[in-house]
């Protein structure tokens, strides 16, 4: 028996999350208070200051894909613990907790569907599952998404959100950078377009592999995008980091991003890109029939 029981039902536990569950949301950037429904209609961005809240795969699938068109693939893949990794707690416990807290099976979901009627493969990451880290399952599922795009000759879209490679699978995680790059080399060889949308945050081994290999690279406003995390850089260089360091606008300025796109415009932008960068006919067909082969394909 507890020493006393909570009597009032209106006391809520404090939640420190980027995207709270309550009816009202206070913007962590400008303090603006927005009604939940309004926030949803505004694509989970602050109507006043434009801050893009972190959202998950469910929301991105809803925002981007035509209603009911998304067919999810490889839903049964789950991480095991090949190295029997234990730090403060066992890796198996972290996986179980990740599943319980998020309702997801790992940090990425893949599938096919249409955006404004145009077919594509979508690979969308969830930062809420062990920091969006890439282990065997993320590597394998991303690879399968690239394979689907290559076989069906439909564009691949990746929405990235990750702290990097997953430490608890050690060298196996590191090699997922190589594995996903191999699949993108095959996709490039087949000449099927690959579009990346960088969201907050995308760092480490994911940035240094498939996130930076898009034919066209988009970013949401003010997303943290980099190789090393800001704290690591500060510790190493003992320098104060400049304002806006590693944000989307910084990456645009330095030439690593094609466009910064507001979340409300993502769907439209992707469908325009699909039509402006159509999947060409196979190389052999163009070699024998000229560029006309493309229109007939």
């Amino acid at each position: 028996m507890a020493w006393f029981n909570r009597t009032k039902q209106n006391i809520e536990d404090q939640q420190s999350r980027d995207m709270p569950d309550g009816l009202w949301t206070k913007c962590s950037n400008c303090g603006e208070i927005t009604y939940k429904k309004q926030l949803e209609e505004n694509f989970y961005t602050c109507p006043k200051c434009n801050k893009h809240f972190r959202i998950g795969s469910n929301q991105y699938i809803d925002l981007l894909m035509d209603e009911g068109s998304f067919h999810e693939e490889a839903t049964d893949l789950v991480s095991t613990d090949p190295l029997h990794f234990v730090d403060e707690k066992p890796y198996t416990a972290r996986i179980a907790k990740g599943m319980r807290d998020t309702g997801l099976r790992d940090a990425i979901r893949i599938g096919t569907g249409t955006i404004e009627g145009l077919e594509c493969t979508l690979a969308v990451m969830d930062f809420s599952f062990i920091g969006g880290s890439m282990g065997s399952v993320v590597g394998e599922k991303f690879s399968r998404a690239a394979d689907i795009s290559r076989q069906r000759r439909i564009p691949l879209v990746a929405i990235t959100a990750s702290g990097g490679a997953r430490m608890m699978e050690a060298a196996i995680s590191l090699m997922q950078m190589a594995k996903t790059s191999v699949r993108l080399a095959q996709l490039a060889e087949a000449r099927v377009p690959y579009f990346v949308v960088l969201t907050d945050p995308t760092t480490g081994g994911v940035t240094a592999s498939f996130a930076m290999l898009g034919d066209v690279t988009l970013a949401e406003p003010n997303a943290l995008i980099g190789f090393a995390g800001p704290r690591v850089i500060e510790q190493m260089t003992k320098k104060k980091l400049p304002e806006g360091f590693q944000r989307s606008e910084f990456q645009l300025k330095h030439g690593f991003v094609d466009h910064i796109v507001h979340r409300k415009d993502l769907r439209r932008t992707l469908s325009r890109l699909f039509t402006l960068l159509p999947v060409p006919a196979k190389s052999q067909e163009i070699a024998s029939n000229g560029l006309h082969a493309r229109a007939e394909a």
Binding site: M212, I225, F227, A228, T237, F245, F256
Partner: peptide
């Protein structure tokens, strides 16, 4: 890879990713 300010400005992640893609093929 060096975690420095200039390294990030010049695209440390892109440089590594590009090499992975090119070494793959």
């Amino acid at each position: 890879a060096y975690p420095g300010i200039e390294a990030e400005e010049r695209g440390q992640a892109e440089a590594i990713a590009r090499n992975l893609l090119e070494m793959a093929r």
